[in-house]
Design a protein around this nucleic acid. Structure first.
Lengths: 339, 339
DNA sequence: TTGAAAGCGCTAACAG
DNA sequence: CTGTTAGCGCTTTCAA
């Protein structure tokens, strides 16, 4: 069977402790001894048993990514978070386990209690999130992707909503738009009340609009294509002087473009549409392809893991990182029409 | 700190072995003793340490999902595989780790060598896949999502391409279509040569077309919107009598619809478009929303894990499951036009 | 039906 | 610089 450290020690004619020292680089070892040990490891094809190591060292080198449970009501970009997080973990010689757990404190506590993971990265945190309390009480190291209301002492990474929104408004203002509507997601959806991105993008939109002396016009819509078509009609009826729309949920943005076109409005000649914090893939799928401020999903997954890993090194580390989306210009935005 | 079995044993006035027996239900225990032990566990808030259990039992109860590395060239549905797999694992009291490993045998071998996981589920397997050989040599239990050329002795779950394609053709034939093109993905992409879904859907399309005495017309396209627009033009030029198109990559399908509409062809009045093995979410995003035979992604993730778990119970278990997509009727298919 | 004890493979004092 | 050894918390014989 697979060689153990004992086998390596015997083959190299040293004690098992010495093998451990070269493996972990925790104590000085004569070059010659080291060489013999490394030779033996190579000969035997030795690979260190993670489980034994974890038990003895009280560090499993596994971290958990807690993600929303529902496969359906879940952003396209979830896969980017996964991949980004898993890669960051792998690069640091850690493993990433996926825990699809909804807002269920008990389930989370039970998983954490298994002592399988060194720490937890929490996704899609709400402004008030029960899971954060659970983790705090369990004394488990954790980091958040997103923010709760009170972030004192909690490491997190999140989207820089203000900068992201500023990118949208700058782009549209540069094109001469002065009457810009914002279509937010709907907090009516169960579990979405106080959802950070909804709250923060809207706040940024309102603040920045006023600063530019533009009258805010906020609409809400479910994150579906159908709802997007609906809200497009609403906007046209209630605020006909709008020349551009910033849309938060990408499916909604898609519906908006479809409905505008359907009603005979040219995008972007008559009205511009900009998708904020969606994915480039989905943005590319509409006709015309959406201009978007793409959400930094994979990066956030990576940064969340890295924040947790730092915290594991240093219990006082307090990462607080914001990352803005990136403006990817498509064909759904153009100069404001003369009216 | 967290209570151990020893604590429970002491509190219940029994030996640690007895606690283990009730925990694992491996030996008969007097109801009274059992009660005392359960009481003690409840009082102490005992939770079994997974790592110690794993080391002693030589079963970690962790399985790995090996998924494509590249965050970009990766289907929207990847997240569904993840969630389906993670849920299935959780339900069976297992954990799922994500290993983003491309076709790199050595990396995979190194991960497996850590003895962290009991088995591996491989995604996106090609007709000839190096990783399968690696796993076989390492003597690691594994299951495939997808199929290699030679599947003797290998447990797998995969899409039932023939039935999925039959659903497409039936649907279109029922609507009176007789001249149906198929737009395949492109094997020109590095790593996509011999990609199972490409090979098998095309084969099914050709076979079934001939059976119905319809002349096959196969096109190939990269899985992007732009390429979809391109291929739509190709089809129109080279095969103007086509009244329906079946498109494999969903981004391509999106581009096809956009281009047809753009060129003044009404979908579906002039030409029907059907997306095969895409996601309902993306299908809903075009205008008109695509009819699709939706790929069973979450289910395959789940079934792949379940196949592996069975294999772990019984090394001779040989799961071989095919699951067809599901026809979700949108508004991109309609009666064949009179010509 | 229960208990004692020997590991699982490694880490980390401590001793030399 | 290297070796000895006591665990990590649990499973699993074997004996009682």
């Amino acid at each position: 069977m697979a060689a153990t450290m004992k086998d390596v020690a015997e083959a190299a004619g040293v004690s098992i402790a010495t093998v451990s020292f070269v493996l972990n680089d925790t104590k000085p070892v004569t070059p010659e001894t080291r060489r013999r040990i490394e030779q033996a490891m190579a000969d035997l094809g030795f690979r260190r048993n993670m489980v034994a190591r974890a038990l003895a060292s009280r560090r499993t080198r596994i971290i958990a990514l807690v993600c929303p449970f529902a496969a359906d009501r879940t952003a396209h970009s979830l896969k980017d978070f996964f991949i980004g997080a898993a890669q960051a973990a792998n690069e640091a010689d850690h493993h990433l386990v996926i825990w699809p757990v909804s807002n269920d404190g008990e389930a989370l506590a039970s998983l954490v209690g298994q002592k399988l993971v060194d720490g937890v990265v929490l996704m899609e945190v709400g402004l008030d999130d029960a899971r954060v309390e659970v983790l705090r009480e369990l004394n488990t190291p954790f980091a958040l992707i997103g923010r709760t209301r009170d972030m004192t002492g909690v490491p997190y990474v999140d989207i820089d909503f203000e900068t992201s929104m500023r990118l949208c408004l700058d782009h549209l203002a540069d094109l001469g738009h002065r009457r810009i509507a914002f279509v937010n997601g709907s907090e009516e959806v169960p579990g979405m009340a106080g959802f950070g991105p909804y709250v923060r993008t809207e706040e940024a939109y309102r603040t920045l609009s006023r600063k530019r002396r533009m009258r805010p016009a906020v609409f809400r819509s479910l994150g579906t294509v159908r709802a997007g078509r609906q809200v497009a009609r609403e906007v046209l009826e209630s605020t006909p002087d709008v020349t551009a729309m910033i849309v938060l949920e990408e499916a909604t943005a898609t519906g908006v473009v479809a409905e505008l076109t359907h009603q005979g409005h040219k995008v972007p000649a008559d009205i511009s549409v900009l998708s904020v914090l969606g994915s480039v893939e989905v943005a590319a799928m509409t006709d015309p392809p959406l201009t978007t401020v793409a959400g930094p999903s994979a990066e956030l997954g990576r940064l969340g893991v890295e924040a947790l890993l730092r915290r594991l090194e240093d219990p006082n580390d307090l990462t607080a990182l914001l990352r803005a989306g990136e403006l990817v210009i498509g064909e759904s935005t153009g100069p404001a029409p003369h009216r």
